[in-house]
Design a protein around this nucleic acid. Sequence first.
DNA 1: GCGTTAGTGGACATGGTGTCCATGATGTTG
DNA 2: CAACATCATGGACACCATGTCCACTAACGC
Lengths: 195, 195
Amino acid sequence: MKTPNASDRRVQRTRRTLREALIEVLLERGWEETSVQHVCDRADVGRSTFYTHFADKEDLLISGFEDLRKALRDQQSAQDSTRALSFARGMIEHAHEHRRLFHAIIGKRSGHVVQQRFRQLLVDLIREDLAALAPAGPHLDATVHYIAGAFFELLIWWLDAPRPLPPSELEQLFHRLTAPVLVALREHGRARRRP
Amino acid sequence: MKTPNASDRRVQRTRRTLREALIEVLLERGWEETSVQHVCDRADVGRSTFYTHFADKEDLLISGFEDLRKALRDQQSAQDSTRALSFARGMIEHAHEHRRLFHAIIGKRSGHVVQQRFRQLLVDLIREDLAALAPAGPHLDATVHYIAGAFFELLIWWLDAPRPLPPSELEQLFHRLTAPVLVALREHGRARRRP
DNA sequence: GCGTTAGTGGACATGGTGTCCATGATGTTG
DNA sequence: CAACATCATGGACACCATGTCCACTAACGC
């Protein structure tokens, strides 16, 4: 069977069921210990059916990342986004709200492709934010990756902590640590424009 | 057979051969595509022998991490380590010298446990450096992880770049971006000591 | 040299992957 | 509403990797 038609009810139902089952199994077993088998069993869906929709378990999980992205955009436009890196609030709150899920997805028991994708998501979000502050080039690239890595590790640390800070404090912490980095970037940009 | 005696010539030879074979296969196939089978074939070592020495391929790779750590310490003590985060120079030079290997080990084609361990190595190194700057607590922890994540992502970005900066520039960049973070940490430390 | 210990290689059970197909079930369309 | 196209099913198949075991042989240390 070739790429099923997404507008068909059956297709939508199957995909939704599989995504939900993935999350359930993920929460119970962690990423590495989750197999396509388990997900299909939980979803009560034939394993052959799985492969007509997704290439593998990573493909399935990543298909849900778009939802996160959209949620972040909604949250972001519904507040004053005057501050740089305003995605942080939404992301942190989202992670707080779905703490166990986030922990399973990006935490220590996750898989590398998934982490890779998540970090790429961060890099994209941050690059959008910083594009206005400095001219494109290796310095901007480096700063974007610097901040993305910092945020990612900070988030994992926070998700792993036994008694984590409240979300607002984490956000504050992140902005306090990152503000001077942005200042440095801006200065660098100005310096290069008027050497 | 139980834990073989490490002083036996045969044991040393077998382990060394396996480590070398792992690196070879790793460079050719990347982490995920490397199996215990492949490594044993390349090393010309029985697969059952592998399991008397290492639990799995991760165990084998990580057994080589201690060498890196030692190399870094030697390099670090052989220079003025007055500057905070002086490990960075050694790490960057090391990564530059073994670029392809580092790329395979911690880059995009790596495995998550390996990355995990490497990040833990960074966290440990940075915590040692920063312990003197601020009192222990969540703020110090957060900063340590922040910097570790930033350095890690910066390193991967650098290893992935088609035309990478020279190592000295990367080091400079890292220190320029991180200096203000350290200042903030110190100030925070002073503020809490004299509230 | 001799007793001990490590390496060999093949067998075995287990479990996951990805593909394929005939069949039955369920939408969609005219 | 009926006919047809499409999807889901579940079982079979070939494949590959894992981890354990064991009887046999080779190499080491003392």
